[in-house]
């Protein structure tokens, strides 16, 4: 019985091998080699790609920093929303879920372009600010003379783009954990003398940590490696790892060996982050399983 069932896993195993394991091996090989010298005699084994990485410390730093900010903002917005959705009746749940899912049905690039036209120097928001006199008020107060607020091509715009695009991935896992939570646990806490604040702090929050952890993972990982958002909304002012890597493979700085090396380093750092987080969440995770 067991063997027969495991046959169903074969397509997936083949898929994984072809499109996950083999590419990683290729990347590893690439990252440890350099292009053939002028003589053109194949690949050379080298650590140059990794030692040269220090030139890009600021890009690494910026990527992780912006991704962390985006993750924290997502958490601060996402947790209360999930909490409300889990507490309120099914009517509110349906509406909120539709509002969260709706943007996901629109193409990712389209959504980001939409933000561009909103944040543009003569975009929708700036026009609105002009209409309501916010810009002249600002000029009046600070004594400056600006025609628009600089929103696009700032790190803030990149974070906004990340939060907007990845917020659902924070809300959904937290919501599902909160929904599944046994209401009698909350009643038990109340019964034992806990007021609303204590119930949340001592029962709801610790029990929802597994959802928070997977939400954080699902927001942080794509945020740290994004390139479209930073290019469209950051406008080249805040280059991130994704842009850097893309540049090595498809852009002007063509050097797939360096690109592979950067990818490997990023992967390892992300992996370490996840391991550390999961270590903290382990106890709770098991508890909730039961």
């Amino acid at each position: 019985m067991k063997n027969k069932r495991s046959l169903f896993a074969i397509p997936y195993v083949v898929w994984m091998a072809l499109f996950v394991v083999i590419p990683i091996v290729i990347m590893l090989v690439y990252s440890l080699t350099t292009a053939a010298s002028d003589a053109g005699e194949g690949l050379h084994l080298t650590f140059e790609n990794f030692t040269g990485m220090f030139d890009y410390v600021t890009v690494f730093g910026r990527s992780f920093w912006l991704a962390i900010i985006a993750t924290v903002v997502c958490l601060l917005i996402g947790y209360p929303v999930s909490y409300l959705m889990a507490k309120e009746g099914p009517g509110f749940q349906r509406v909120a879920m539709a509002l969260i899912m709706l943007p996901m049905w629109i193409n990712f690039l389209l959504r980001t372009y939409a933000w561009m036209s909103i944040l543009e120097n003569n975009g929708l928001l700036n026009q609105l600010f002009q209409k309501i006199g916010l810009i002249s008020l600002y000029n009046h107060i600070t004594g400056s003379d600006v025609e628009y607020f600089q929103m696009i091509r700032t790190p803030g715009a990149v974070v906004l783009g990340m939060v907007y695009n990845y917020l659902p991935f924070m809300i959904l896992p937290i919501y599902s954990v909160l929904c599944k939570m046994d209401n009698s646990l909350i009643e038990a806490a109340q019964d034992l003398g806990a007021g609303a604040g204590e119930v949340f702090r001592r029962v709801t929050l610790p029990l929802s940590l597994p959802g928070v952890l997977s939400g954080v993972t699902m927001v942080f990982v794509p945020s740290v490696s994004t390139f479209a958002i930073s290019r469209l909304l950051g406008g080249g002012t805040s280059m991130m790892l994704g842009d850097l890597i893309e540049n090595q493979f498809l852009g002007g700085a063509y050097n797939p060996h360096l690109g592979a090396a950067i990818s490997m380093v990023m992967m390892v750092i992300v992996l370490i982050c996840m391991l550390v987080m999961n270590h903290f969440g382990e106890g709770e995770e098991q508890a909730v399983m039961l």
Binding site: E187, A189, A287
Partner: peptide, 14 residues
């Protein structure tokens, strides 16, 4: 000043 033993115990798993 009343406490309850719940049907399925409702012990705090964490």
């Amino acid at each position: 000043m009343v406490n309850t033993v719940f049907q399925r115990y409702a012990l705090f798993p964490h």
